[in-house]
Amino acid sequence: MQRGWKAAAMAVVLGGAGGASAHEFTCDKRVQVKGEAESPQGEAPRVTKFPATLRFQYRLRNVHPKGESVANLVEDPLLARYGFGSPFPTPLALGVGQSRDATFELKLDSPAACQALAASDGRMDDSFDSTMRVKWDLGETQCSARVTCCEPFVDCEMTCPPDDPYCVEPPNPVAPGASRNAGFFKVHEQALQQCLGLGGVDLGAARVESLEQALGLLWASPGLDRNGGVRSEAEAQRFELAREALVSTCNERLFGANVKRGRALDEALRTLRGSSGDEGLERLTRELGRHNDAGLREPLPGGFDAGRATPAHAASIAADPTEPGRP
């Protein structure tokens, strides 16, 4: 008798648990740059003109075949600071086959505002993901949409709002001009020598004064010093920044540089020559790398002779100029 009572009680408990989990949702999340054509399927919209308005669109659907579904939590953490952390009030009950839509518009006044969003998701890139998270009893689902920001001073454009008659649009962004990256300079000894003919380059842990030293910085491994020792993470980051700074210096000397690249180079050189810390190394390396790549398709100035590529010889004379153990 006692055993039968326990079995009946267990059946009631299991039955209750099954009823509590009888919920199921799917969600859909899209982002569109207002006033522009919707991006092709699977392609993230790119924000290039400012001020811009992003239109976030949400759809939550009950897909349980027989019963009502109740969402206990619906959130979009990335947009919480803008007053839209909860696209739908909860608890939210939807009957069989029912769905609920919501929209939110966010105005970005400048490229800096877009870049701030890109940085807020914790990844070091020009994109951000806005994710809606839905939780119910014993279940959860998520849906995300990605947005990509333009690169300031390269492909961003400031325009006037249609309702502001006093706004004057600035001129179009300046083309980046010719530039070449580390892969070019590491095999074109003649171009690199012309750069160094205008003076040495002080890069903190390394002062590059000869062709061999410059090639050493371009050919050596960021993770290993010239004695075969393993560099610390900070040393490796400084090495990579020094490499991009050398390339950017040569781009400036040989081909000219736009304003943005020049500011980033100045900051990088100050950071490399200082010893106060390693904050910003990764950001500066990424920024200089972008600008070194920006003009790869542009022709070199007329009359400039880069010489032929000599990878085998260049690698054979390369000598890492960095001092092991020095920050």
Rank of each mutant, 00 (worst) to 15 (best):
E212I: 10
A312Y: 08
G177S: 05
E244D: 00
R61Q: 14
Q193H: 10
G197N: 15
L54G: 13
S179D: 03
D163T: 11
T131W: 05
A102V: 04
C195V: 09
A102W: 02
F239G: 05
T322R: 13
D28T: 12
L117W: 02
L215M: 10
E169Q: 15
M132L: 12
V31A: 13
G216K: 03
K66S: 12
N227E: 10
A205L: 09
G216C: 10
L284R: 04
F184S: 02
N172D: 15
R263D: 06
F25H: 05
R180K: 07
Q213A: 14
P299S: 12
F239N: 08
D137Q: 10
R46Q: 15
A214S: 05
R100D: 00
N251Y: 00
K260R: 15
L198Q: 10
K66C: 01
L54I: 13
R231A: 09
G177H: 04
T103N: 10
G216R: 03
V134E: 04
D293C: 07
E169T: 15
P321N: 08
V134Q: 01
R30D: 13
L14Y: 02
A9V: 15
L265I: 08
R243S: 07
R46M: 14
R59I: 14
P45I: 00
A236D: 03
L215F: 06
R238S: 08
E282A: 15
N227D: 09
S120F: 04
